[in-house]
Design a binder for these strands. Structure first.
Length: 264
DNA sequence: CTCAGTGTTCAGTG
DNA sequence: TCACTGAACACTGA
């Protein structure tokens, strides 16, 4: 479920195994779609023998930095993930596997193949990262900054939250969760939010993302009061832990769960 | 067999 | 040009 907290979790995982270590071997799957124009062999060549200086993230993208260019940039799409392991078989749906000098292994998996692996010399200065807004965890704008981003948009506030060029890292479940906790109807035009609502939106966004990252994006560890646990499946009789009725509709082209009794 | 789905991009519309 | 909408992409699992 790769939104910002999941990607941050995966980034930390990869960093734990790879940082400061040399990559001694790389295996790549034959998948032109996921490798997005960068031939798998060029990706392998960019990493083989290199020492990983850092694993960085912006929004839902993360990339490996070594002492040379280009960097290898990852996006997990809808179903991508990262697995680490010491030995044994490559995980199902693997796309790339890296082996470090001390035997640690890291693989990216992606059953639905909407994820991407790219090569970039200067990731932050080139597309697709160059088009991203501030990161929702590390660079979250103030309530005032948020107001400026939203005030000119007539689009539903939920669609604005999902727009990566405004704020990077918010995905479908975070948008629903934050609007639920802030008590804002997802269909409201972004420009219609009052000052107090913007302040609430901002602080809820920060709290939800921080909590999810602190939980290692393990949803079993998310607070019981979160909408998250009850929003899936478009069930007609869905209720929150507090017994509030959950309604499903489409907003900004995405399945949206919200609680009419609480969100205005 | 049918359908929903955690994301992004692009064609088309106004 | 801009803002916005909806479809397409691909595949699994319910």
């Amino acid at each position: 479920m790769p939104e910002l907290p999941e990607v941050e979790t995966v980034r930390r995982l990869a960093e734990r195994v790879l940082r400061g270590r040399r990559i001694v071997s790389i295996a790549t799957a034959d998948d032109r779609l996921v490798f997005d124009g960068a031939a798998p062999r060029r990706v392998a060549a960019a990493l083989r023998g290199r020492t990983v200086a850092a694993v960085r993230r912006k929004g839902k993208h993360f990339w490996l930095e070594t002492d040379r260019r280009p960097c290898v940039l990852f996006h997990l799409g809808m179903s991508g993930w990262v697995e680490t392991y010491g030995d044994g078989a490559r995980p199902r749906f693997w796309k790339i596997e890296l082996v470090s000098e001390d035997g640690g292994r890291v693989a990216m998996t992606d059953p639905r193949r909407l994820g991407r692996i790219r090569l970039r010399d200067e990731p932050l200065a080139e597309p697709p990262l160059a088009g991203l807004g501030p990161d929702a965890l590390d660079e979250l704008p103030s309530a005032r900054g948020l107001a400026e981003l939203l005030q000119r948009r007539s689009t539903p506030v939920k669609a604005a939250l999902l727009d990566q060029s405004l704020i990077a890292g918010v995905g479908n479940w975070i948008a629903d969760e934050v609007l639920y906790q802030a008590g804002i109807d997802p269909r409201r035009p972004a420009s219609s939010l009052r000052r107090d609502e913007l302040a609430r939106l901002r602080s809820t966004l920060a709290t939800v993302i921080r909590r999810a990252v602190a939980a290692g994006a393990d949803d079993a560890r998310f607070p019981r009061t979160w909408l998250f646990h009850h929003r899936w499946g478009r069930k007609n009789d869905a209720r929150t832990a507090r017994g509030e009725r959950i309604v499903h509709l489409t907003v900004g082209g995405r399945t949206t769960a919200f609680v009419p009794d609480r969100q205005r």
